[in-house]
Structure formats: C-alpha cells, structure tokens
C-alpha cells in the first residue's frame, strides 16, 4: 500500500494535468467558435467558385486545357493534413489510415506516390511506419496564408499541366457538423473530378437547379479557364485546411473534456484512498500505544 505522501503527490500531479486539459478544452472551444464563422464564408465562396467551374466545363462549346485532361505519367501525389499538435484523440490515426490506403493502392497499381504533409504529429506517425513524406511544409500555421496557398497550389498545378502528375488528392478530416467529422480524400486533379465531386455536395446549390440564360464569355473560355482552374484548386486546398483545422479543434475539445473527466474521477478515487490510508495510519499508531501501555500494566 502506498504511503499517504505518495498518494498526495500523485493526486497533485493528476490535478495539474486536469488543469491543463481543462484549459486546452476551453481554448479549443473558443477557436472552434471563431473558425466556424470563417468556415461558413469560405464554404460559400467555394461553392460559388465551383458553380462557375461547373458551368464552364459543361458548356456547349467544349473547353480544352491541360488542367482538364487526364495524364499518364505514373506519378501521383497526396497532401495529408494531420493535426498540428497532439492531444486530439484518434484524429491523426484516422488520417493515417487513409494515407496508408493510398500507399497500398499506389503500390498495387505500380504508381509512384508523393506524400506532402504540413509539419505536425502526422509526420512522426508516418516516419514511425517507415513512410517518408516527400515534403514537409514547416511554415504553415493551421491555415496557410494567401501567399503560401498560391505557392502550394501553383506547384501542383504546374506539375499537372506539364503532364508530370496524374492525380492529386487531399487527405483531410472533413467537417460536417459539431458532432460529425470524417476522414476523407478529396480529389483535386484531374480538375473535372473535383468539379464533379464538389458540385454534387449537399452544401452547394446544384447548378442544374439554377436557370441560366445563354451566356457569352469575354475573354473566351479557353483564356480564363487556367486562372479559374487555379483559383478552384487554391480555394479547395484552403477549404480543406479550414475543415481540418475546425475538425481538429472539435476533436481536441472532446478529447480534453474526456481527459478532464477521467482525471477528476481519478482524483476522487485517490482522495478516498488517501483518507483510508491516513485513517489506517492513525489507527495503527493508536493501537501500538494502547497495546504497549496495556501490556505494561
């Protein structure tokens, strides 16, 4: 049986942990709230963007552009967005499982897979499993700035347009609502797939529900498609990062709430243990004195 002092020490340690986890929960709650508004506006913008893209690619007069064509270079890439820090439950484990699937699929189809990851916990997990990421973005802070987005999106787009990349997807935790987030892969390129995919998402107002007059484009479609395509890619990457960030905070909120509750249970348990140990000690000491004096009498 541990001594009273050890129990007190342990209880102190646990209550310190509880204090930290409680604070982390509050921070994540606050961040979640502030991100939520941002998220809504990004979703709106993104939807509008995609609608435009949809109209362009489904126009009567087909548009030709390398971004819209399929490639067959045998090279694929994914951007896997894990959490920046730990303490968010099984968030990274879910992301990792999807990445693993991509690795497996690439191996099965004999394609080369490049994995890009922002700095964070996921990098360690990948390294542990012997998967070396091609590039680690070390300067991204939850959501990349516009300059960084430009740089990232530009890199993939130009690779694709040069015909050196067949596929580019983002593995991230999609945010549906406070109570539901799921890890999934969003195909960014081929662009057609992305536009198709996004246009059927429930959040978007389906373009075929809108009635359009015939429209003319100036400058013509094949002139603007590249800029719009890049913009869609950029905004998709941004919205994925947004989803990932907001999901991470939700995950952390839940994980930390559970941790705090567990710690509190433990403190309760240890308090009982401590009281019992203290009482036993007092009884033993008393008995020794009483027994001793009784025997001497």
């Amino acid at each position: 049986m541990p001594g009273t002092r050890q129990i007190i020490q342990r209880r102190k340690a646990v209550s310190n942990i509880a204090r930290i986890t409680r604070t982390m929960e509050m921070i994540s709650t606050a961040k979640y709230k502030s991100y939520h508004n941002k998220w809504l506006s990004i979703v709106d913008f993104h939807d509008a963007m995609v609608q435009l893209g949809y109209l362009l690619v489904t126009a009567q007069k087909p548009v030709e552009h390398p971004l819209l064509k399929d490639n067959s270079s045998g090279r694929t890439a994914i951007l896997a967005i894990g959490s920046g820090r730990g303490l968010c439950g099984s968030y990274n484990a879910h992301i990792y499982r999807l990445v693993e699937e991509h690795v497996y699929r690439a191996k099965a189809s004999g394609k080369k897979l490049d994995i890009y990851v922002p700095e964070g916990k996921l990098v360690h997990i990948l390294n542990y499993h012997g998967i070396a990421p091609t590039k680690v973005y070390s300067d991204i802070d939850e959501i990349p700035s516009d300059v960084q987005l430009e740089e990232i999106a530009g890199e993939y787009a130009s690779l694709y347009m040069a015909g050196e990349l067949d596929y580019f997807g983002i593995v991230y935790m999609r945010f549906y609502s406070m109570s539901s987030q799921r890890a999934q892969t969003l195909t960014i390129m081929p662009l057609i797939e992305l536009i198709d995919d996004l246009a059927t998402r429930s959040k978007a107002i389906w373009p075929w529900d809108l009635s359009f007059e015939d429209f003319y484009l100036t400058p013509p479609a094949d002139k603007i498609i590249e800029d719009i395509g890049k913009m869609i890619i950029r905004s998709s990457i941004q919205s994925c990062f947004m989803d990932a960030a907001i999901s991470e905070h939700v995950a952390r909120m839940i994980a930390m709430r559970n941790a705090t509750e567990n710690a509190e249970d433990m403190i309760k348990e240890m308090t009982i243990q401590y009281n019992r140990a203290r009482q036993t000690q007092i009884t033993t000491e008393l008995l020794d004195i009483i027994g001793g004096s009784g025997a001497l009498r």
Binding site: R10, A13, V14, I17, A18, T21, G86, L87, G89, S90, N92, A93, H124, I125, Y128, H129, A255, N258, A259, N262, A263, M266
Partner: peptide
C-alpha cells in the same frame, strides 16, 4: 497507465 487512464491510448507515441 496514468496517462492512458486520463488521455487515452491515442495520445501515446506510436512506439
């Protein structure tokens, strides 16, 4: 064991 009891197995390093 204490860490697992409070934070859960997911927070441990892979090793």
């Amino acid at each position: 064991q204490d860490i697992i009891a409070i934070l859960g197995v997911d927070e441990l390093s892979k090793q």
